[in-house]
Each structure stands twice: as C-alpha cells, then as structure tokens.
Design a protein around this nucleic acid. Structure first.
Ligand SMILES: [Mn+2]
Ligand SMILES: [Mn+2]
Ligand SMILES: [Zn+2]
Ligand SMILES: [Zn+2]
Lengths: 131, 131
DNA sequence: GCATAAACAGTAATCATTACCAATAAACAA
DNA sequence: TTGTTTATTGGTAATGATTACTGTTTATGC
C-alpha cells in the first residue's frame, strides 16, 4: 500500500495559479515567470515549470500543446476552443465555439481514436498591423 | 530587381524526399536522418533539417503542427487528417475523414480566424499493447 | 515547538533545432 | 569537356526551452 503523496499549497504555487487565472493571454512558462516575479522576486524558473506541470496534472490549469514551439498555459479550465497566430504563436479564446461533429466514424489503421478537437489558426491583431 | 534564388536538386534533397514518400510513419527529423543515412552515410543532421524545411516551404512535404516535443514530417501532401498517440507521440493517418463544419462563425477577440482543422488523439497499437 | 519530507532556489545537464563557415558540387554557359 | 558561379554541404558550435540534480528551506501534522 503506497502512501498517497501529499501536495502542499506553497506561496509560489498559489501565486502562479492566481496570476494565471487573472489573465486571458495563455502565457508561456517564461511569461508566467515574469508575471509571478513581480510578487515573488526570488522565485526560480524551475519552480515555475514544476508547478505549471503539477497544476496541469491536477486539472487546475490547462497545458496547451503545440509542436516544437514553447508550451502555453491557461487558467480557464472550462471547455473552450483556441486560435493560434501562425506568425507569433500567441493563443486566443474562441467565442461561439464551432460544434465538433460526430467522431465515431474516424478510422485510423494502427490507432484507437479517442477524441478530437478543432484547432484554429489565424493572425493576431499585433501581427496583422505589422503587414 | 532581386534575382530569384535558384534551388538545386542535390542527391541529399532527393533521397530525403524519396524516403519520406516511401513511408506512412510521419517520422521526426531524427528518424528521417536514420532512414536517409542508410543510403547516404555521410549526410549531416543539419542538412536533413535544412532540406525538410525547404521541402515543406516548397510544398513537396508537410511539416505537421500537431503537438509533441519534436516536429514530424509527411511525404503525403494530399489533404487528410491525423491522429496522435498521447503516450508516444506517433502520428497516424485518419481514413474516412470527419468533415469540418463551417467555421465562419468562430469569433476570437483580437484575432482573425483563417482556418480550422480537426486534431485527433488516441493510442497507437504499440502503446495499447503495453497496458 | 519538533519531526518529516515536499518543495524550493540555484545551477548543471539535456534535447531539439539553428547558425556558422570553409569545402564541395549542382547548374549552366563557353 | 571545362570553367565559373554560388547554392548547398558536413562538421561543429551555439541557442532556446525544458528537465534534472542537490543542498537548504518550509508547509504540515502531531
Ligand atoms: Mn483559453
Ligand atoms: Mn499523413
Ligand atoms: Zn501574432
Ligand atoms: Zn503510442
């Protein structure tokens, strides 16, 4: 019988969660580091990474996956869809979600398909104004 | 009048393209390197990366956006959908594609939504048998 | 308070990808 | 065929994001 590992609510973890919930910007780990450092100037980047992973694992935040580039985090765990700017990688929330059609027909040899989601691409205002 | 930059069909570029077209496995750059090295033992990893990018830019191959720490490449450029194994990151092709609904209603403040695609997740045979 | 071990700060290591550069070889005209 | 041009190469160093390590700190329960 393995002892259930305790998790402690540290000041660092608390602040990371609060900061992430206070924005809609889907920041990267490095951006979270910048935000949190205003309140905890001595926090280390490693602590930010560790807690972002732990918070994602416990379901308190979302870890947004995308190939290659750096990962982004979301304090809003209610189901919603995302757009990614193809130029800078920024992520935004999609209002009026597009309903995902029935997935059950999707066959992929050698795979068991479990879920599907719609992934949007576009351009953010900042990048659009640069063109 | 800037002179249009020439592109040369080198042995390396040719073999990378051929090898990528000969498989359905959506290999990573490192896996392509392994495949190509059987025919060109002296090729460098940098050359593989460079050519994969050039081939993707010219539309001869696809650079997949799907999540994971490494990017994956596809020699099949005809439109199709992908599943990604959540355990190992392997990518497979989806037969009987699920039709993407009209996305023109998708609004995202601060973004111009340009496209959408369905991203599938699941488990590959290899990982499934390990459970 | 005191003991325990989860979590921390600081730092080194890893992994994927890019950048650099002198040497090589496609492409093309003579 | 030979020569000229310069895109591309192999080898290697550098970068950027993330993870691992380690001695110290601190949240938590008694
Ligand atoms: Mn969001
Ligand atoms: Mn494919
Ligand atoms: Zn942008
Ligand atoms: Zn798998």
């Amino acid at each position: 019988m393995t002892q259930q590992q305790q998790t402690r609510m540290t000041k660092q973890r608390m602040v990371i969660l609060e900061e992430l919930r206070s924005v809609h910007s889907h920041p990267t780990a490095d951006e979270v580091y910048g935000m949190v450092r205003q309140r905890l100037p001595r926090i280390s980047l490693g602590t930010v990474y560790r807690n972002l992973d732990l918070l994602a694992e416990s379901g308190d935040i979302l870890k947004l996956e995308s190939a290659g580039s750096q990962k982004r985090f979301d304090g809003n765990v209610t189901p919603h869809q995302h757009v990614r700017c193809t130029q800078c990688g920024r992520v935004g929330d999609v209002m009026e979600p597009v309903r995902l059609p029935d997935i059950s027909g999707a066959r992929a040899p050698g795979f068991i398909v479990l879920s599907g989601r719609i992934e949007f691409e576009g351009v953010c205002e900042t990048c659009a104004s640069k063109n």
